[in-house]
Nucleic acid binder design. Sequence first.
DNA 1: GCGAGCAGCGTACCT
DNA 2: ACAGGTACGCTGCTCGCG
Length: 793
Amino acid sequence: MVKKKKALFLDADYSVNDNKTYARLLVKGKKRTRLLFQYDPYFYADAVGKKDVVAELKVKKHGESISVKKVEVVTKIVDGKEKELLKIYCNKPADVVALRESVPFKCYEHRIHYGRRFMLDFGIRPFSIIHYEREGNIISKIRKVDEENNRIKLDKIAFDIEVYNPLGAPREKKDPAIMISYFGEKKGVITYKQAKKSFVHVCKNESEMITGFENKIAELDPDVIYGYNSGNFDLPYLKARADVLKIKLALGKGGKSFRMIRKGMISGAKIPGRIHLDLYPAVRFFGFIGMVKAQVFTLENIYAEITGKKKKMVQRLAIWEMWDKGDLEELAEYSLGDSEVTYELGEHIYPLLEELSKITRMPLFDTGLATSGQLVESLLMSESVPRNEIIPPRPSGGEAMERQKNPIEGAFVKLPDPGIYDNIAVFDFRGLYPSIIISYNIDPFRLLEKGKHGDSFESPTGARFMKKPKGLIPFTLESLLDLRAGIKKTLKEMSKGSEKYKKAYARSHALKILANSFYGYLGYARSRWYSRECAESVTAWGRMHILDAAKKAENAGFKVLYADTDSLFLLLGDKGKKHALAFLESINKNLPEKMELELENFYTRGVFVSKKQEEKGAKKKYAMLAEDGSIKIRGFELVRRDWSKIAKDTQYLVLEIILKEGDKDKAIKVVKETIKKLKEGKAALSDLIIYTQLTKHPKNYEIINPEVAAARKAVAKGVPLEKGSIVPYVIGRSGKSISDKAEYADYAKDYDPDYYINNQVLPAVMKILKELGCDEDELKNKGKQKSLNHFLE
DNA sequence: GCGAGCAGCGTACCT
DNA sequence: ACAGGTACGCTGCTCGCG
């Protein structure tokens, strides 16, 4: 019987039955389910003249005879030009690979995953509503696809496990999991030692606990499962325990546990039939794009950073002791707390991930693991299909290496004169690179060959871009920006805090993240749309516009204090704000429509310091006081995680005193106090921790810097540090070199006051004090020990 | 054998 | 594994000196 239905689309992969391929759709109507839809995989080949030969092609692979299902001649746009191609249909996705290898012609789109192919061809994106007719679990017809969904909500749950860890780091073959907590509509803790709490379910043993969790997931049947580092810790650990105990771990549909998948360098665990969202990689991504600033990426710290709330959480090192002591009530409480925090964090992040997923058409699970390159790639791929453009292939490894070896000239940064300044106006170009790409139609397939002119824009590099028609990249980028402009308007009329507002805000944010990634993607070595000429032209036009604005500012009587990429810092001098705004207007009159210089803010005072070794000013380092009393600080040690809190706090105080009071003696007094505290051994170790990320496994370093030395010592004690870990360490008293003295923070017993005075506090404040005229010659000519003595007099 | 000077590695920041 | 531009600490090497 045929039934007309509609459901929320979530993801697609495939299944093969009787040599026929079905798209297997994960959808949610009343309940979440999987449906099948027959659709043939295919690829393209540049072999129109050989249609008959190709149609008869037969290949043997692994003893199986593979043949072409059907061949059509189609017209596609290849590298910007129309071209006839063969569209070669296959029976199974694996046949695409086998047949393409035996087709001795140039092939296209043969490496696009089947699930993605299906979504692209049917114009379906995650969270689309699809209207369909079905017989059993087979879709016979897709009637239409809607974008709007206000009714179907996803059910979410967060979970967390605790493991027995007498050595600090648990050993998955030996150390049992001891507790599993979950939090969502329902909450609870499963364990196997007595704990008198209403939310605790006590089992007999570890096996029962794991099975109990499995049953709980089946019963609650969440669509989305949140975890924090669950893809690389909780789930693999539970699986390892299940294997040791010879039991199953079925968290997904059909008795499956999960499948480890790699998206580039990032790995994750895919639970079949659900959406497993590991918040850790998502948060790392937000950190990478500068949206989240954090010293360390622990759940506790990120929760505080993102929600602004503090919560007591499980101290990993103490877990096994609590378990041995039978302190289960407290452990259960903490464990549930961790799940709750994970849930709350998930709900904070979720709207943005959903919007990124919708816009880029990348399934939510993949979006949670994606890099900006993958997001932009996914978006451009889905825009290519309706434009009938062939999706360019990814470059080979060699090609990517070659691209990486030849970097593209970037932005202009003006050398500032060090000093303290009053009355500064800061302007910046709104979305400089995106607006350049759109204004000059910068696209790899709108690039004219050398010597050809036509109706084109000529970049400062000499490259020429056809004015019409709009290229894929400027077109897509412009739609993002137009969409965003529309949303920003509606946001103003919404009440903050409402669901609608949150959604729209997340959407606007997602659009911004994507728009800002386009230039990077053009110059990204592994990009499908890499173009040296395009990326070079973007930055060249960028330099041209900022230098032009700077020159006009000088002509208008302003002194240009500083400029970086798209920003311009002007000294107002004897001119008022009105003059500055008039200057702004005059600049904007002569810019292309999509480009605009904006007022960022006025500042009453600013500090620019000199470089450490030279007299020249330091770029990308300044502090300014806004009229509302807030301080904008960039580049200083105090914004860096690899400086100790004590040095950063002292530097902040000195900056604040200079900006707000200009009182040199007061600043010196603050520094002296800090030094005294350090000398007397009264500084708290927690204020002395330096955080540094490892970009390799600790064993892979040739030069043993302090963080590597500390990490190696910690690894020897069982701390699981690896590539990407952030190492907290303290410089202690024992040892010769600084590396010798570096100790992993958890194991630090003492500190070296000389190091913290001479290598942390003094370097952080000296350059600033120098701008106050603080014994310049003395500071410049004498060694660190001398200047120290000067302070302690 | 030892310290000074320096190159290069490595990290985190800015836009 | 998104771009380039930039500052700067630390190690480990070279070199000159004795």
